[in-house]
Write a protein that binds this DNA or RNA. Structure first.
Lengths: 247, 247
DNA sequence: GTTTCTCAATTGTCTGACATTAATTCAGGC
DNA sequence: GCCTGAATTAATGTCAGACAATTGAGAAAC
């Protein structure tokens, strides 16, 4: 855990990097305790506040956790799938919102990824996945369901499809893509999303999954993708006309 | 930018969350300047070091950048694709290494994702992508190439295939999966990876991409996936036998 | 043996200070 | 009038020292 005097970055950034490298390289293994803040301050020849800033940087990335008390300190955190999901979703959401990614690009990416898991899902889907999907379809058929709840159910449905592939790494990668899309999806949902068509697609997907018909799943996802994109274009066109009424 | 007194978390975590929420909700837009540390300390009724720890947390996530000097301060950062790539790769790599994800699962996920972009890549590939892939194949044919360089070239090849889909969101999602796999790949590369077979697959993929033959790309990727997994199993079996020699 | 108390180690927070950086301002010379 | 350059100023970066809060461990009492 050495820090090069070279880089011009802030001390706290240098120290954070040094510790991060030690973790990534395996020098510090999961659940091992880092030296106390005072000891780190001595080692790196900086003050304790500087060390603390470095530790907060690592804590922000879920790389360490801290505990107070006599046997407390900073411990190397095991990065769980849950943590990784959360970070991935945050990053993806911000990336989409801050770079004005157009709906078509995001939608295309999202469905392309989802189609990637169709063959695996068809081969491995369990009863739990199918029942989850059917339950969500039932909820979606209720006209009294609010738009927000419909959206959430939509995400849950697709999440179940992804999970049916029974590959946690794949689920992790796709969860970010699907969930990060939700805010963008909402933009069109709250205007005029014809639920009947979507539920019909969902039903077909569930049927195909039960039949382990990978090609049918793929086909339905492609239709749903095209449908969503064309719907978005319609909505955008209407909005554009409204904002420039007389011309 | 208010902080609830509710949560029991550290003050710096609360403040970081409050500011992060303000950014995500759009209350603070890209490139806008946050109040100075002293002002934030007043607003949140904490000391400056506490505010600084909060800001370092956000800086660790590339959400803000800081600048010294008279007109300095903390500014909301635009999350670039490059930043997002880097974070995604770091997270994915740590997730794989800390959770003892087995090679087969990771490999399956990686190729499933890559196959997702085959149709788009076939439809849109430009001359640049094809020439990059051919150049990498040429490098890979050189027997003098070191194992590390071969690996890097391998990643570059697949990266070009992904980029050929011309969807930056898709590229972002896949870059993490492909690059995070590299350390795991290295484990088998450095023993006995038959380069000829891999180069043959790569050549076929490049040919199929040029011919815009999505199905052929998909087929070749599937073969490469199966090949890689079986190779890994062979290597593991050999290692297991070596580590338990006489029994 | 069990419970309770005290203690020590560690993180969390505050105060106040100084160093460093960089834009701005303004005086002086041309 | 215009350029040059030094002082000003406002901000972050860093430090030292202190105290509060928390928590486990060992000592002491029963």
């Amino acid at each position: 855990m050495k820090r090069d005097a070279a880089s011009k970055a802030d001390l706290s950034a240098q120290i954070a990097k040094a510790i991060r490298d030690a973790i990534v390289s395996g020098e510090l293994i999961v659940d091992s305790r880092l030296p106390s803040e005072a000891e780190l301050a001595d080692q790196f020849e900086v003050s304790r506040p500087t060390v603390r800033e470095a530790l907060k940087r690592l804590a922000a990335q879920n790389l360490i956790r801290t505990q107070r008390g006599a046997t407390g300190g900073a411990f190397v955190n095991r990065l769980t799938y849950t943590d990784a999901y959360a970070q991935h979703i945050t990053t993806s959401t911000l990336l989409l919102s801050m770079n004005a990614v157009d709906f078509e690009t995001a939608c295309e990416a999202r469905f392309a990824l989802e189609r990637a898991c169709a063959p695996l899902a068809a081969a491995r889907r369990g009863a739990g996945h199918l029942s989850t999907m059917r339950a969500e379809i039932n909820r979606q058929e209720d006209p009294a369901l609010s738009d927000e709840a419909f959206c959430t159910s939509d995400v849950a449905f697709h999440r179940a499809l992804v999970d049916a592939a029974q590959n946690p790494v794949l689920s992790y990668q796709l969860a970010g893509a699907v969930e990060a899309m939700q805010p963008l999806m909402n933009m069109i949902t709250f205007t005029a999303r014809p639920r009947r068509d979507i539920v019909a697609r969902h039903s077909e997907i569930a049927r195909a999954l039960q039949a382990a018909d990978a090609e049918a799943i793929d086909r339905e996802l492609a239709r749903l993708c095209d449908f969503t994109i064309s719907l978005a274009q319609t909505v955008m066109a209407v909005r554009a006309r409204r904002s420039v009424p007389s011309r």
